[in-house]
Design a protein around this nucleic acid. Structure first.
Length: 466
RNA sequence: GGGGGCAUAGCCAAGUGGUAAGGCAAGGGACUGCAAAUCCCUCAUCCCCGGUUCAAAUCCGGGUGCCCCCUCCA
């Protein structure tokens, strides 16, 4: 089955057909590293991490590139305020970014290029655009001539006139046209800068993605993605630059995810109503954050509420207990072939899962398939006689869909207990045999205080961490 | 002024013509020495008003409320 995805460029769902064979080239706009990332930023990275994992599962060879914007106005301002150098500030927040992403289970991109390490590539692009008449230099600044691209506005579906009539276009008398945007900005005294044919300066925001995408993925890429607020002007401008530069179609599919709202407002750094991942993960299970981000379709808005995150922690417990149930049942299972009933059910579930994900990456439905699997597994575990091989197959299914693709389930066994706890558990088993329930309950309560929950099953007593 | 989006149970949420998925929470039952876990059951006329249709949460028209983009922002 082919994967269908909503393309902002055409405003329709299209079948994913990579430019070459089964190779998918993906570029996702990464963070501007002047601060810690917030949960809204994390939505992009978590969601496209799942897209990448799913496409890999489908057999595509995915090359995933995500940049760091490590020089721009905001970085310069933040660095000045703190009295540190821009590279030092960037370094700090890049490290922080990776810490947050590791916690959320986001895998590293194949390449994480930084803007400041690709200045020559950007200068080359800018020079090319000037040579072709798509850009012009004024007093050390270089601007892109938006009117020179006849289909400028095609991504955001706005005509030049519509864009111009917008009341919020900044007035800059140096530009030929208000819609023109900076490719290169002349350095002000004391600012970090690089040499260029137009004097000392630094790149504009948009050109870095064009330059780095081309360097690592080529003239044309398959998927280009980011948050909806990047659609205009950032992605629109990237298209304009890249296509004027190379003469090729920049990206086939443009994917944009919805925002996270705080109350009735978009969560954004400029509004100051942000909730940082760094702080959230101290208070909540990071997987619950990941679950929260995947619980709604990626193009729909999500409202952030602390008690919603708590809800997802509760849901996560079912994922954890089913794994515990399967593992524990394994100890009293027999040898034999995997049951054909198990194979058949897992096949159905796999189909349902793929159907959900192939439908524009409907993670909400994919997760509900996971719960169908949980129910099936718990039923299976309750049978009198089950084979180890059947249980293994079910665990394997969860590994692929719950862990490898969605990153919501943990399949690793719990760590070993210490000897004191083990002794207490032993003592309680003994007490129960002697029907000394008062002592048994006493021990169970005490272990609970120590964070260990005991459960008596037909296959014996087992424990788990609270 | 132009361009989009959202409104489904206490909460999260899927569903784009065929009679409301799934999860959290809650209540009842089974199982248990008691629990826990698990399983079963219960819990929505889909923002409002019209219209089209044998049939509408889904399509059309008109409202109401909220959000976003056209400026840095995921």
């Amino acid at each position: 089955m082919t994967t269908r995805l909503y393309n902002t460029l055409t405003r329709t769902r299209e079948e994913l057909r990579p430019l070459t064979d089964n190779k998918v080239k993906m570029y996702v706009c990464g963070p501007t590293v002047y601060n810690y990332i917030h949960i809204g930023n994390a939505r992009v990275f978590v969601f496209f991490d799942v897209v990448r994992r799913y496409l890999q599962y489908k057999g595509f060879e995915v090359t995933y590139v995500q940049n760091f914007t490590d020089v721009d106005d905001k970085l310069i301002k933040a660095a000045q305020e703190e009295g540190v150098a821009v590279p030092e500030l960037a370094e700090r927040y890049i490290a922080a970014y990776f810490e947050d992403m590791d916690a959320l289970g986001v895998k590293r991109a194949d390449v994480h290029p930084r803007a400041t390490e690709h200045i020559p590539e950007m200068i080359e692009a800018i020079q090319n655009l000037i040579d072709k008449g798509h850009a012009y230099e004024i007093n050390g600044d270089v601007y892109f001539r938006s009117l020179s691209k006849e289909d400028y506005g095609k991504l955001s579906h706005q005509s030049i006139d519509e864009l111009k009539s917008g009341a919020r276009i900044e007035v800059n008398e140096r530009k030929e046209n208000p819609l023109d945007f900076a490719l290169w900005k002349a350095a002000k005294p004391g600012e970090i800068s690089w040499d260029s044919p137009w004097g000392k300066g630094r790149p504009g925001w948009h050109i870095e993605c064009s330059a780095m995408a081309r360097k690592y993925l080529g003239d044309s890429i398959d998927i280009h993605a980011g948050g909806m607020d990047l659609c205009f002007p950032h992605h629109e401008n990237e298209i304009a630059q890249s296509e004027c530069w190379t003469g090729e179609t920049f990206a086939q599919y443009w994917l944009h995810n919805g925002y996270i709202n705080m109350g009735n407002e978009k969560m954004s750094k400029s509004l100051g109503n942000i909730v940082r991942v760094k702080e959230l993960r101290e208070e909540y299970e990071p997987r619950a954050l990941r679950y929260f981000l995947l619980s709604a379709h990626y193009r729909n808005p999500i409202s952030f509420r602390y008690d919603t995150i708590r809800q997802f922690e509760g849901a996560l417990e079912r994922f954890d207990t089913v794994v515990t149930n399967l593992r524990h049942r394994m100890e009293a299972a027999v040898d034999g072939e995997p049951s054909s009933a198990v194979e058949a059910r897992l096949k159905e579930l796999t189909q349902a899962f793929e159907e959900a994900m192939d439908d524009d990456f409907n993670t909400a439905n994919a997760i509900s398939v996971l719960f169908d699997g949980v129910k099936f597994a718990n039923d299976w575990v309750a049978k009198d006689v089950v084979s180890k091989q059947s249980l293994e197959r079910i665990l394997q299914w969860f590994r692929v869909f719950g862990s490898d693709i969605l990153g919501l389930m943990e399949l690793e066994p719990e760590e070993i207990l210490d000897s004191e706890i083990e002794a207490l558990i032993e003592e309680r088993i003994q007490a129960r045999k002697e029907r000394n329930f008062a002592r048994a309950d006493e021990i169970r309560d005490r272990l609970q205080e120590m964070g260990i929950i005991l459960e008596d099953t037909p296959q014996g007593t087992r424990w788990r961490k609270k």
